[in-house]
């Protein structure tokens, strides 16, 4: 009897302020975007917002955003893994600690200052642009511009690669040397060991981290907005222009439909992330 009473009275009061705060300042705005996506300007139910968000220029912006995030993620994932492998093989020492600390710091660099520091590097008058020019190579006449999807892919590497390094070092260090010894005793070759020991252990965290990088690149607004002043039609930029009213009026709740699209894409990737990262913990106990 007593136990029953206790069970019924599990305290929840302490969590109420926190959950309510998030509910009000995140739940209500997100909920209103979702509802508005299905609402016409007069307030009645409609699918026309969704329809226009998925057609014409807006469909194109989803494709551009996905393209940017996928390319940036693939490059960062591979580069990050290569760096992590190099770091794991090192002796513990000042250099290794410095690399880890630097990864933590660079992974947190983003937004407007990052955009401007790349303007100084690869912009029209940037350092690298000038150095290459004095060597006879004009990258801007060769079709490159920093203020494009290619440019953004390069800039995003600045925080994406370190993120990948930070995530991949623990699983790589978790590779148990006894597994390799056992495999060697059994006569396994180097590719076999990669395939049957390294890959199964590092694949889940690798995929999980890549998903994380993807959402990062997909949702990013500041760097793109500062670098391109809204000229590249990425989804967040399009939503931004709709908010600022830089487009023809009477678009009603089109922005909300685009926003819903972003939530759906990020949400699906986040769910995939949760599943994959659960698997990845298995080998790292």
């Amino acid at each position: 009897m007593a136990i029953k009473v206790l069970r019924r009275r599990k305290p929840i009061l302490g969590a109420v302020p926190f959950v309510a705060y998030v509910g009000i300042f995140l739940g209500i705005p997100a909920g209103s975007v979702v509802l508005n996506a299905f609402r016409s300007q007069s307030g009645s139910f409609t699918l026309s917002n969704i329809h226009s968000a998925l057609s014409g220029g807006y469909r194109q912006s989803f494709i551009q955003s996905l393209k940017l995030s996928v390319i940036a993620t693939v490059i960062a994932a591979i580069a990050g893994l290569l760096v992590a492998v190099a770091v794991v093989g090192m002796k513990d020492g000042a250099l290794k600690r410095a690399i880890m600390a630097a990864s933590g710091v660079f992974a947190n660099t983003g937004g407007v200052p990052l955009a401007f520091s790349f303007v100084a590097t690869l912009g029209n008058f940037g350092l690298i642009t000038k150095i290459l020019l004095s060597g006879g190579v004009n990258i801007y006449s060769g079709g490159f511009t920093l203020y494009s999807v290619t440019g953004l892919v390069i800039v995003y590497q600045y925080f994406m690669i370190p993120l990948m390094v930070l995530v991949m070092i623990p699983p790589l260090e978790g590779l148990n040397s006894q597994w390799f010894e056992a495999a060697q005793t059994l006569g396994a070759s180097w590719p076999t060991m990669w395939r049957s020991i390294v890959a199964p252990v590092i694949m889940p965290p690798f995929i999980a981290a890549s998903l994380l990088l993807f959402t990062d690149a997909f949702a990013a607004y500041a760097t793109a907005a500062a670098l391109t002043s809204g000229t590249i039609p990425l989804v967040p930029i399009q939503i931004g222009s709709l908010i600022q009213g830089n487009v023809v009026a009477n678009q009603g709740n089109l922005g909300a439909a685009l926003g819903l699209g972003m939530i759906v894409i990020v949400g699906v990737v986040a769910i995939a992330y949760v599943f994959v990262s659960r698997r990845s913990n298995r080998w790292l106990r």
């Binding site: 926190f18 705005p29 975007v33 997909f218 908010i243 926003g259």
Partner: peptide
Amino acid sequence: SVALLPLIVPSVVVTLGILSAF
């Protein structure tokens, strides 16, 4: 998990929601 929820709603979308809901 609640604390991680903001990662799912891009800040541009949050802004849109703030402007319409509040």
